[in-house]
């Protein structure tokens, strides 16, 4: 059983390295073929790299602390299948905290999922992280106006919640069938 898991893990990391090599190859190819774009490409990647390097280690430590200190019962009570409206509100608030780029949110979602958070709440958490940020809202207000911002915010909240519930139903019923 454990051997199988190890093997799966190794396969997974092998896949990630193969993927990375392909991406590096493509990047080099583009840099050589389209040299006039190379500075913009490198600058953008470098900016994102810095952004990530400054918060990612800290976020992973937070995830580590989370997994040793927070009990499964606690997460299940607040974000699990039966958490209802409270879980939805908590997920929106967790997601809307100003904490940086999207790729930090995925490991956090994974940690929440492992501790028993429902798919509804994970979808809400990720989507809120992506598009309901307080600083982001202020910029939107400034450049697109108050009506645009509020209308989009209101509808986003409604539709994200609906999407979360639907995805939970879809994945939930499938895993029941497969009897995971």
């Amino acid at each position: 059983m454990k051997d199988k898991m190890m093997k799966k893990n190794q396969n997974n990391s092998k896949k990630s390295f193969i993927f990375l090599s392909i991406v590096i190859f493509i990047t080099l190819l583009i840099l050589i073929l389209i040299p006039e774009k190379s500075s913009l490409i490198m600058e953008t990647s470098y900016d994102y790299f810095l952004q990530m390097a400054m918060v990612f280690p800290a976020i992973l430590i937070l995830m580590g602390l989370f997994s040793v200190w927070i009990s499964k019962e606690f997460v299940m009570n607040h974000l699990g299948e039966s958490s209802g409206l409270k879980g939805i509100v908590v997920s929106f608030i967790l997601g809307a905290l100003p904490t940086g780029p999207m790729f930090i949110a995925f490991p956090m979602a994974q940690a929440l999922h492992k501790k028993g958070a429902s798919y509804t709440n994970i979808v809400i958490f990720l989507s809120a992280w992506a598009c309901i940020k307080i600083p982001q809202g202020l910029v939107e207000l400034q450049f697109l106006g108050v009506k645009f911002m509020l209308a989009r915010l209101g509808m986003t909240i409604i539709f994200i919640t609906i999407m979360g519930i639907i995805i939970n139903k879809l994945i939930g019923s499938e895993s029941l069938k497969q009897n995971r």
Partner: peptide, 30 residues
């Protein structure tokens, strides 16, 4: 233990994250 978990996920996720960062650069640049 928490630090160990953090270190492990860093190792596990780094290649994927580096790929994503490069892809973002390419797409934005192009």
């Amino acid at each position: 233990n928490a630090l160990k978990i953090a270190g492990k996920s860093l190792l596990k996720l780094s290649p994927t994250i580096l790929s994503v960062i490069l892809l973002i650069g390419i797409i934005y640049g192009l």
